[in-house]
């Protein structure tokens, strides 16, 4: 069996008196998409920096593809792709020149730049200066840049934040394609919908600690409450909402009562969202 793509062992990092990452441990299997969820300042970006060798952990160690990142960062860098939260492209160069530069840094000569641009929906815009790109286009180019070396692990830090739906969808499509290719994806986000839809597992991080790590389905099963939400017509004719928790002994009786005694307008079953679960676990919202 192949060794895990990422092994984090008791990672710790401190900015002055602030403990940003507090003895975090987890494992990401090869070909898995792990969503790393948490509010701003929770320690997500610091963890990514440690995993990608940008920061040296104060204790613990990170093993990527069987290689200790702190000891052999360049061996790791040759096999990973990193897409940063904020655009950091050469704005005075064209999209093609940006990609070509990074291909050369990885010593790759036969790169299909047109194919990469096509994958991220930038066909026909490769020769434009990056400074003339919109935010979404820059983000898509950053994804393309992270793919130039066909990485075994792809780190994506808030890749769809603030993007238009088209750009966000293009990026989600690439993430799925990369997983199909066999790459592992470490996705940092606070978009619960995105995490739910894309990730095999999600980790909730709060105040530098992982508070939960499992598949979205299991998290919902474990922490969430399924319910039926109904809209009914009230005595004065206004619409009222009724919520009935499922999986309780009295559930069937309550639903029967509702249907017999109320004028039901709509009736939906609902399950808890990841956001609900995060709030339940941490008492904080994800923004």
């Amino acid at each position: 069996m192949a060794e895990p793509a990422i092994v984090a062992e008791s990672l710790t990092y401190r900015y002055g008196n602030l403990l940003a990452v507090d003895h975090i441990s987890f494992t990401v299997e090869r070909g898995e998409i792990l969503g790393f969820l948490g509010p701003n300042g929770a320690g997500k970006s610091t963890t990514v920096k440690i995993l990608t060798g940008q920061l040296r952990p104060m204790s613990g160690r990170a093993i990527l593809l069987g290689i200790d990142v702190a000891r052999y960062p360049k061996q790791v860098h040759a096999r990973i792709g990193v897409c940063f939260e904020q655009p950091n492209l050469y704005e005075e160069l064209s999209g093609v020149d940006n990609l070509r530069l990074f291909a050369r840094l990885f010593n790759i000569r036969d790169i299909d730049i047109a194919g990469l641009l096509h994958r991220v929906g930038l066909d026909g815009r490769g020769d434009d200066l990056v400074g003339h790109y919109s935010k979404g286009m820059k983000q898509r180019l950053m994804i393309a840049r992270a793919l130039v070396n066909r990485p075994d692990i792809l780190f994506l830090d808030e890749p769809t934040e603030g993007l238009d739906p088209t750009s966000a969808e293009a990026i989600r499509r690439v993430i799925c394609e990369e997983q199909e290719r066999g790459a592992t994806v470490f996705l940092t986000t606070h978009d619960m919908y995105e995490a739910d839809r894309l990730c095999n597992r999600v980790a909730f991080i709060n105040s530098g600690r992982i508070v939960a790590l499992d598949t979205p389905h299991n998290l919902k099963q474990q922490y969430g409450k399924r319910m039926v939400r109904a809209e009914v017509v009230g005595p004065d004719g206004s619409l009222l909402t009724r919520e009935i928790i499922l999986d309780q002994p009295e559930t069937a009786h309550e639903i029967a009562n509702l249907l017999q005694h109320e004028r039901v307008v709509t009736l939906h079953s609902e399950e808890a969202t990841l956001e609900d679960i995060f709030i339940q676990l941490t008492g904080r919202a994800l923004v």
């Binding site: 990608t52 060798g53 940008q54 990193v82 940063f84 950091n88 840094l105």
Partner: peptide, 14 residues
């Protein structure tokens, strides 16, 4: 300023 140094240093470049 453009943070490109960060991108350069997560490649094999030292």
């Amino acid at each position: 300023e453009q943070k490109t140094i960060r991108a350069l240093l997560v490649t094999p470049l030292t």
